[in-house]
């Protein structure tokens, strides 16, 4: 087993644990935007699409690279925009905030 793979595995495991810690503290009220936000984070696959654009050198590979870039860009742009739109709707009481929840 190579050093790179072991490092990658360590990174993966620790990131999973951090994910569990952070996510379990998010209130149910925000679960939809949180899921949509997590959705935009996996849009990081756009980085992968950039890398493989440097590998593609056959017609088939160009087609696949095109779709990879299109899918990834749709994921990342749409994800962040829609999450922002949703979160913009969550407002505290307009005017008097006599009784704040928590």
């Amino acid at each position: 087993m190579s050093v790179e793979l072991l490092n990658d595995l360590a990174l993966f495991t620790l990131a999973l644990l951090v994910g569990f810690e952070v996510i379990s503290k998010i209130p149910a009220t925000l679960h939809t935007p949180m899921m949509s936000g997590a959705n935009s984070i996996h849009g990081v696959i756009v980085v992968g699409a950039v890398i493989i654009a440097g590998l593609a050198d056959s017609p088939w590979a160009y087609v696949l690279a095109f779709f990879a870039a299109a899918f990834a860009a749709m994921n990342v742009v749409g994800g962040y925009v829609v999450t922002d739109r949703m979160l913009g709707m969550f407002k505290a009481r307009p005017g008097s905030d006599k009784e704040d929840g928590k």
Partner: peptide
Amino acid sequence: VAMAGFVVDNDIMIIAGALVGASGS
């Protein structure tokens, strides 16, 4: 996405993929 990070040996894809994997689970 995390597996794709292993394939192209890219840290950010591994970390981001694992975070989403955790949240989805």
